[in-house]
Amino acid sequence: MKTPLLEAVNITVSFPLRRGLLGNVVESVKALDNVSLSVVEGEVLGIVGESGSGKTTLARCLVGLVKPDSGRVLYVGNDIFKLKGALYRRFRREVQMVFQNPYTSLNPTMKVKDIIKDVLKASGNWDARGEERVKDLLKAVGLGEDVLHKYPSELSGGQAQRVAIARALATKPKIIILDEPTSALDVSLQAQILELLSDLKRRENLTYIIISHDISVIRYISTRVVVLYKGRIVEEGPPGEIINNPKNPYTRKLVEDVLYLYEFIEKR
C-alpha cells in the first residue's frame, strides 16, 4: 500500500448564501461535503463532476488556494495549510495546476518568456542556463521559440494551453492538478493535448489529478476514477468498472446519457 502523495481528509467547504442583519451567515451551501480522496505517485486520478458538483472548489483546496472549513489537506503527510518556510516552498514547487481557460490563466501583460522565467525564478530553477531552460520547456510541450516574445492574446487556444502546461512544468513538479484542461478546446486540439499529457507523464514521472465533466476524457487518461456529485464522492473505482458496471444511480445515469449521446461513435 503506497503512501499517498496528496490527500484530502474529510474536507467540507461552505459558501454563505444569505446573511442576517448583523452580518452573520443565515443560510449557506456546501460546495464540498466531507470529501476524502488520495492520490499515490504515478497515478492518474480522474474526478468526474458536472457543474455544481464542487470540482473546482476541490481543485482549489488541493492546491492550497482555499482552506476548507473542516478537514485537512495533506501533502506527504503534512497539513498544507500549516506549512512554513522550506516545506511550504517545497509544496509550492511539487504541486502545480493547469486551468481550464489558458487566456485567463496566463498574465495578459507578460510575454511568454517572462511568464515562464518568473516561475523558474520563484521555484529556484533560474540560473545562467535559464534562457535555455525556457526554450527547453516550450520544446517539451511542442512549441517553438517563436512564441517566446508573444503575449497570451497573440496565441491560439492550443498554443496558450501548452504554455500553461510548460509553466506548470517549470517548477519540476511531482503532481499536476488539471481542471478541465481540454474543455475550452476543439476536439482535434483536445486529442493533441491528451497525447502531450501522456507523453509528459512518462518522461517526467508525473502524477496527475484530472478533473472534467467529460467522462470520455476521464476514461481515456485515468488509472482510477472518482465521481463527484453535489459536493460528495458517490463512486470510486477503475475506469473500466465505472463505465461498464456503475453502481451509484448518478453514475449510472451519467454513463447512460453518454452512451445514448455518443452511440454513433461508440459503434465504430
Partner: peptide, 9 residues
C-alpha cells in the same frame, strides 16, 4: 493568472 502565480510560489 493570479491564482496560478500564487501556486507557482
Amino acid at each position: 493568472y493570479v491564482d496560478a502565480a500564487k501556486i507557482a510560489g
